[in-house]
Amino acid sequence: VSVELPAPSSWKKLFYPNKVGSVKKTEVVFVAPTGEEISNRKQLEQYLKSHPGNPAIAEFDWTTSG
């Protein structure tokens, strides 16, 4: 189950709350306009370098507050 949070234009930000008793931590995933899922800052940096014209990296908020 995921919750969609505010994201930069043409992107989606999905929040996957951890299940009770789960060892997996809460996860935030950005979905690029191409449909590619980005789950960490390093991936995001690589994606933005190879896909010019996207929002600046500073516009991506990895917190769950939206």
Rank of each mutant, 00 (worst) to 15 (best):
K42A: 12
P55W: 11
Y47S: 00
A56K: 10
E36R: 03
W11I: 02
L5W: 07
S10D: 12
K12I: 09
E37C: 14
L44R: 00
V3M: 10
V3F: 11
V23H: 15
L48Q: 00
V28E: 01
E45R: 10
G21V: 06
P55A: 06
P52K: 06
S9E: 13
P6T: 08
S10C: 13
S2C: 13
A32F: 01
T64G: 11
K25E: 13
V29S: 05
N40F: 04
K42E: 14
E27I: 15
I38H: 01
Q46P: 00
S2W: 15
S39G: 07
S9Q: 15
F60T: 01
G66E: 11
V20L: 13
P55E: 03
W62T: 01
E27S: 12
V31C: 06
V3A: 07
K19C: 11
A58S: 14
P6Q: 09
K13E: 03
F60P: 02
K42S: 14
A56E: 13
V1R: 05
P6S: 09
Q46N: 11
E36P: 01
I38K: 00
I38W: 00
F30H: 01
P17A: 09
G53K: 06
Y47D: 00
S65F: 09
A32E: 00
G66Q: 10
Y16L: 07
Y47I: 01
F15K: 05
N40S: 13
K13V: 06
N40K: 04
T63E: 10
G53M: 05
K42G: 12
Y16T: 07
L48T: 01
S65R: 09
P6Y: 08
L48E: 00
E4G: 08
G21P: 08
T64V: 14
E37D: 05
G21E: 09
Y16P: 02
V3S: 07
A58E: 14
S22T: 11
V20W: 11
F30I: 01
E4C: 08
V20D: 15
S2V: 15
G53T: 04
F15V: 15
Q43R: 06
L48D: 00
G35S: 03
E4V: 09
A7M: 05
F30R: 00
I38L: 08
S9F: 12
E4T: 08
S50M: 12
F30S: 00
T63P: 03
V23I: 14
V1N: 13
Q46L: 13
T63H: 08
L44Q: 01
W11K: 02
I57S: 07
G35M: 03
K42Q: 13
V1G: 11
E36G: 02
T64L: 09
S9P: 15
T26W: 15
V20T: 12
E27W: 15
N40Y: 05
I57E: 08
W62Q: 01
D61A: 05
E59F: 07
P17N: 09
N18H: 13
E27C: 15
S10L: 13
P55K: 02
K49T: 11
P55V: 05
K13I: 04
K13P: 02
T63M: 07
P33A: 02
V20K: 09
V28C: 05
P33E: 02
Q46C: 07
P55M: 04
K13G: 02
F15T: 07
W11D: 03
V29H: 06
K42V: 12
S39V: 14
P52S: 05
S65W: 09
I57Q: 07
P8D: 04
W62D: 01
E27R: 15
E59A: 09
P8R: 03
G21T: 09
V23E: 15
N40Q: 06
K49A: 13
K19D: 09
V1T: 12
N54F: 03
E36N: 03
E59P: 01
P17Q: 12
A56Y: 07
S50E: 13
A7Y: 04
S2D: 06
A56Q: 10
E36H: 08
N18R: 09
K24C: 15
W62V: 02
V1L: 14
S50C: 10
V3I: 14
V29Y: 08
I38Y: 03
I57W: 06
H51R: 03
L44G: 00
L44E: 00
T63V: 05
V31K: 06
E4S: 10
L14K: 08
N40A: 04
T63A: 11
G35D: 02
T34P: 00
E45Y: 11
F30E: 00
Q43F: 06
S65Y: 10
K19F: 12
R41L: 12
A7C: 06
T64Q: 07
S2P: 15
G35A: 02
P52D: 06
P8V: 04
Y47R: 00
K13L: 03
K42N: 11
N18M: 10
K13D: 03
T63F: 06
T26N: 14
Q46R: 10
L44C: 03
D61M: 05
V28F: 05
P33M: 02
V29R: 09
E36Q: 07
K25N: 14
A7I: 04
N40T: 12
V29G: 02
V20P: 14
A58I: 10
E37K: 14
A32H: 00
P33R: 01
L14A: 04
I38D: 00
P6A: 09
G53Y: 04
T64A: 13
E37Y: 15
K12P: 04
T26E: 13
H51E: 02
P6G: 07
V3Q: 08
G35W: 01
W62S: 01
N54L: 04
H51K: 03
K19V: 13
L48R: 01
E37L: 15
A7W: 04
L5R: 05
K19R: 15
E45P: 00
S9D: 14
V29L: 08
G21I: 07
Y47A: 00
V31Y: 07
S50W: 08
F60A: 01
S9H: 14
P17V: 15
S2T: 12
Q46I: 13
K13F: 03
F15A: 11
A58Q: 13
W11Q: 01
A32G: 01
K49L: 14
D61Q: 07
P17E: 12
A56F: 06
S2I: 14
L5A: 07
K24L: 15
N54K: 03
P8W: 04
K49I: 10
P6I: 07
S50I: 09
L5D: 05
F60V: 03
V28Q: 01
S50L: 11
V29W: 06
T63N: 10
I38C: 04
I57P: 09
V28G: 01
Y16V: 09
R41G: 09
T34S: 07
A7D: 04
P6D: 09
K13R: 04
N18W: 11
T64M: 09
V28K: 01
V29C: 06
E4Q: 10
S50V: 09
I38T: 00
G35T: 01
F60N: 01
P6E: 10
P33V: 02
G53W: 05
L44S: 00
S50T: 14
Y16F: 12
P8L: 06
V29T: 08
L14S: 03
A56T: 11
S22L: 08
A58F: 11
K12A: 08
K13H: 02
Y47K: 00
T64N: 09
V31T: 04
S2E: 08
E37W: 15
S10W: 07
N18F: 10
K42D: 13
K19I: 14
S22Q: 09
G53V: 04
V1Y: 12
V29E: 03
K49C: 08
E37S: 11
N40M: 04
T64P: 12
A58G: 13
E4D: 08
E37M: 14
Q43E: 14
F30K: 00
Q43S: 08
V29Q: 04
P8Q: 04
K24R: 09
G53N: 10
G66K: 08
R41V: 13
P33F: 03
L5K: 06
S65V: 11
T64D: 09
F15S: 06
T26V: 11
F60R: 01
S9K: 14
V31Q: 05
S10E: 14
S65H: 11
T26S: 13
L5F: 09
A58H: 14
L5G: 07
K12Q: 08
H51C: 03
Y47N: 00
Q46A: 12
E4I: 08
A32Y: 00
S9N: 12
K49Y: 10
P33L: 02
K25S: 10
K25V: 13
L5H: 05
E45V: 09
D61I: 08
E59H: 06
K24T: 15
E45L: 11
A58W: 15
S9W: 10
K24M: 15
N40C: 06
P17T: 15
S22G: 14
P55R: 02
V23S: 14
E59V: 06
K19M: 13
Q43H: 08
Y47M: 00
N18Y: 11
G66A: 12
L44H: 01
E59G: 04
E27L: 14
L44K: 00
I57Y: 12
T26D: 15
E36A: 04
Y47L: 00
F60C: 02
E45H: 10
E27K: 15
K24Q: 15
A56N: 14
L48V: 03
E36C: 04
V3E: 08
Y47Q: 00
T63Q: 07
P52I: 05
A56H: 14
S39K: 13
Y47P: 00
V28A: 04
F60D: 02
K25A: 11
